[in-house]
Design a binder for these strands. Sequence first.
DNA 1: TAATGAGGTTGCACCACGAAACATTTTTTT
DNA 2: AAAAAAATGTTTCGTGGTGCAACCTCATTA
Lengths: 148, 148
Amino acid sequence: MFRGATSLSLDAKNRLAVPTKHREALLHECGGNLVLTAHPHRCLLLYPQAAWEPIQEKMMALSSFDKQSSALQRLLVGFAEDLSLDSAGRLLVSPVLRDFAGLSKEVMLVGQGSHFELWNMDAWRAQLAQVMQGEQFAMPAELEGFSL
Amino acid sequence: MFRGATSLSLDAKNRLAVPTKHREALLHECGGNLVLTAHPHRCLLLYPQAAWEPIQEKMMALSSFDKQSSALQRLLVGFAEDLSLDSAGRLLVSPVLRDFAGLSKEVMLVGQGSHFELWNMDAWRAQLAQVMQGEQFAMPAELEGFSL
DNA sequence: TAATGAGGTTGCACCACGAAACATTTTTTT
DNA sequence: AAAAAAATGTTTCGTGGTGCAACCTCATTA
């Protein structure tokens, strides 16, 4: 299970040095074979390849005539790239994906259990601010009666 | 059950020396394995690892396409870090979490039953002041008919 | 009341990780 | 084929995390 947020910077060649605490887990789980793709919320998703496959299956099983479905397919499958950790535990982020998520030098890598999200630092902060805005933060209806 | 508020200060390396009265309980309950994460109210949550897992489960079961749900996931799971008490009963607070909660040297550790909250001292005072503001503090509807 | 011991706290030194710069190899283009 | 650009690999430096150890405080006992 991947947890925790790490502030990182892309190097001059747009490579992301994965924190060592996660490297071992990634190498172990998938031999360093990963999938990086786009998320509707303008961040990137980083999955171990094995974990990604069933998700892609599920997406492509949806009707490609439905506007909503095909839009999601184009995003999630269309942007998906196979990549692997290099000898120094880094991975190269393509211009297309960088552009999509607006990544500049400073980025935030956020563990989300089965996968990671990769954010432009400003976008991350903006999204945070939004949750905490207001006296009382929004609680999804499914969590009725749930407390921390 | 964790109770009581303790004023503490982070050391030069940003470690928090857990009060001895709580150390034993923490070691006993979870072998010193803890999870520290972010709370929407700009404080940090400190859970025994075992107590945290079911909460994370519940969060990750929500839809990651829904804005509210995913925002909560990003906050609670995205910031969650595994840590453990060192030999001197201290725990290291990462830069990311310190930054999130605006922790400087003076902090307040507040027992909340199953877990603790960790506050920036000023934020803590501000939040206190808010409750006590006014002659009569607001009573949640769920507490109808309840009295201290 | 003084001495001894245990537990707690603080400071110090070492080690590991991340960032950046540098070096080398491979590919593409003219 | 040569040169430039892209990709991959290596090294170094600085910061930050970790563990150890000395010191201080408090409690206990004679």
